[in-house]
Computed example of a mutant assay.
Amino acid sequence: MKKKGSNSISVKSKWTKTKWLLSDRNLTQYVPETKRFTRASLNEMTGRYKMVYFKPTNGTGGSGIARIVRTPSRKFRVKKDARMVEVTSVSSLYAHLLKIARGRSYLLQRGVYLQTSRGRPFDLRVTMQKTGGGKWVPTVMFVKLGKPNNVVTNYHQGGKLELIEQTLRRSGYNTAQIKQYQLKLKSLGMKTAHCFNRHSVKFKELGLDVALDRDGRLWILEVNTRPGFSALKSLGDKSLYRTIVRYGKTYGRTR
């Protein structure tokens, strides 16, 4: 664990954080199947799921992530950044992924088909922060809208931030459904914060990346222990940025 800011700690390993979520009976159902990358796990995951994500264990900002899609003819298409490669077997897929990994530790995660808004895939961000009194609060929620066909939705990878209401409305959800999702997201944020708190009370902030799939189900894709603040300035509504900074100041984080 690494200290950041005044006294809020940060955990880089996605594998460590995923294991925490999986060991919590309130959260297991929300975590897509995730395994450490090995020849055997690749065989298993690509056999079980049509789409699998290949993620660096310690990566940030969506960098280094590749998407693997199994075609009807049992070939595999691997997309990383703007580059697409097609391979014909699990062996050649494994060799290709080893080149991408360059000796770094990677994970394989079941791919979730994201809901779209005007053709753009999106996921949801719930930011949890501690008050001065040490209580967890869901402070801001927003949408990360990806570029069509992009592997990730991250702002720094060409994504765009939007307010949850407008995105969900464009996706065909009504007011009652949107309110229901907002309540579910807050509940998921609180459960996750309590899970992380059991591992260390020194966590002061968390950013949950939550997928809404095409069947309307929520999945926790990742939990960031050092969630970004600055991209919120890109929203026309500056109140979210002001809120996140206000809470951040109580534990020494100002940007």
Rank of each mutant, 00 (worst) to 15 (best):
V151I: 06
G159A: 12
N197M: 12
L206W: 09
V152A: 07
K144A: 03
G159R: 07
R198M: 13
T167V: 14
L212P: 12
K202T: 10
Y173L: 10
T167Q: 06
Q180I: 06
Q180K: 15
L163R: 11
N150I: 02
L206S: 06
L163Y: 12
R217E: 01
R170Q: 12
D209V: 11
Q166D: 07
V152P: 03
I178Q: 11
L163M: 13
H199P: 02
Y155R: 05
L183N: 15
E222W: 04
G207A: 09
K184D: 14
V151S: 05
F196H: 10
P148I: 00
W219I: 02
A211M: 11
R214Q: 09
G158K: 03
K179P: 11
F203R: 08
N224S: 08
L185D: 09
W219G: 00
K191I: 14
S200H: 06
L206R: 03
Y173E: 04
S171K: 07
C195K: 12
N197S: 12
A211F: 01
A176V: 03
I164L: 12
P148V: 00
D215A: 11
G172K: 07
E165W: 11
F142Q: 00
G207M: 07
T192E: 13
Q177D: 00
F142E: 01
G159S: 07
L188C: 15
L183S: 14
T192H: 13
Y155C: 03
S187D: 15
K191W: 09
L163I: 13
V223R: 01
K186A: 08
G216H: 05
G216K: 04
N197E: 15
L163W: 09
K204I: 04
H156T: 02
M190K: 10
L218S: 01
R217Y: 07
K147R: 05
K144S: 06
S171L: 10
N149G: 02
L145M: 09
S200I: 05
W219Y: 01
V151Q: 03
E222L: 08
D213G: 06
Q180H: 14
H199W: 06
V152Y: 04
A176H: 05
M190N: 07
N224L: 07
W219P: 00
L185K: 10
L221S: 04
R198I: 06
V151K: 08
M190D: 10
N197T: 08
L183R: 15
R198G: 14
K202D: 12
Y173I: 02
R198P: 12
R198K: 15
K202P: 02
L208E: 02
L188S: 15
L145H: 05
Q180G: 14
K202L: 14
N149D: 02
L206K: 02
S187T: 12
G189M: 11
T192I: 13
G172I: 10
N174D: 13
V152C: 05
Q157P: 02
K184N: 14
A211L: 06
K191S: 15
E165P: 12
L168W: 08
S187C: 12
W219L: 00
S200G: 03
L218W: 00
L163P: 06
K144Q: 09
K184R: 15
K179E: 09
F142Y: 11
L218P: 04
Q177F: 01
K147F: 04
R198D: 04
D215Q: 11
G216F: 08
T153A: 10
F196M: 15
K160S: 13
